[in-house]
């Protein structure tokens, strides 16, 4: 098998605060293969967006920095050590990124076509006409009908779903191998969400695009992802193939998250819930970050952080008391 397109090893991000350094992302590791869709799932503050921002070197503040680990692109360059000028070539060239709110990530005073050709001409030596033709082709690929007419439209002339398509077009302008999609459908209506998810799957098929899909919605994960990594309190607590994670999860947080989806179970009446609140910055629990909310927590959980182990082949788990073993009386 060829090496993974992207290999993240023990990536950590810290923020300097008045109360001392705080860990936002804690030793996150995963691999992304060619044509794979990886779902990064978690609640707000779980570190899922921060992980992706660290990968492309766009941390939101100078007080936040990568404190360790590596991000290897195509088995070669380590992105965490790249100069900013080289990093710029990676962004857009190798890794594209799309966001939750297309309105605030598209330039309102530049036409859609202008934003795509700008990116093409920044990364490739092509003339205007050539860039424009490519832009029309990309708009067509992301499902914008009549792209030759609409290429000169401005973002406000597009509807919400069209804007998200346009942002995908901008991100894909230079044929990146990897697309990082940060909650791309959260702001969209459910019928439009399905269209955008379909588009991402089509792009994966046609371009062998590898996608990291950041989402809080396990339903979306179930529909489109191949692999899932569940994050809590800055760490990946469980990672594995989609089927295993959804049908045979072992981390209490993963099972809790699946059970508390309102669409699950009997459809009517009370929802199963996870008690308590997700940890906030500055009040990270000791030991396993999930232990204050975990029904299976023991003294051990409060004291020592569980190591991330390969619980099964391709199935990583960080838990002292994995579900499914408790009944059998202790760990194997």
């Amino acid at each position: 098998m060829s090496p993974p397109v992207l290999s993240v090893r023990d990536l950590s991000v810290i923020a300097k605060t008045d109360q001392g350094p705080q860990t936002l992302v804690d030793r996150v590791s995963f691999e992304l293969n060619r044509g794979e869709i990886l779902g990064l799932v978690g609640e707000s503050g779980s570190g899922k967006s921060m992980t992706c921002r660290a990968i492309i070197g766009l941390l939101p503040s100078s007080r936040i920095s990568i404190s360790g680990g590596s991000v290897i692109l195509r088995g070669k360059s380590d992105l965490t050590h790249l100069e900013e000028s080289d990093m710029r070539k990676v962004r857009g060239g190798d890794i594209g990124m799309i966001f939750q709110n297309p309105s605030s990530h598209l330039d309102p005073v530049m036409s859609i076509g202008g934003q795509i050709t700008e990116s093409i001409r920044y990364h490739h030596q092509v003339n205007r006409a050539e860039a424009r033709n490519r832009a029309i082709e990309i708009l067509h690929q992301v499902g914008i009908s009549d792209p030759a007419q609409r290429i000169d439209d401005y973002p406000h002339e597009f509807s919400g779903g069209m804007r998200q398509r346009a942002m995908i077009a901008v991100a894909l302008a230079c044929n990146p191998e990897i697309l990082i999609a940060d909650e791309p459908t959260t702001a969209l209506d459910v019928t439009v969400q399905a269209q955008i998810l379909r588009l991402l799957m089509d792009l994966r098929e046609k371009r062998e695009l590898s996608i990291i899909l950041i989402t809080h919605d396990l339903g979306v994960v179930a529909q489109v992802c191949d692999t899932v990594a569940v994050m809590y309190g800055g760490r990946i607590c469980e990672r594995g193939p989609k089927r295993e994670i959804i049908l045979d999860a072992h981390h209490p947080y993963t099972t809790g998250l699946i059970d508390c989806q309102p669409s699950g179970g009997s459809h009517r009446g009370l929802v199963k819930t996870i008690a308590g609140q997700p940890p906030s910055q500055g009040s990270m629990p000791t030991g396993c970050a999930f232990h204050p909310r975990c029904a299976h927590a023991t003294k051990e959980c409060a004291q020592t952080e569980p190591a991330a182990v390969d619980y099964q082949p391709n199935h990583m788990l960080a838990c002292h008391h994995p579900i499914g073993e408790i009944n059998e009386g202790g760990r194997a």
Partner: peptide, 8 residues
């Protein structure tokens, strides 16, 4: 709200 809080 976050999913786990939504349920609550």
């Amino acid at each position: 709200l976050d999913v786990s809080i939504q349920g609550q």
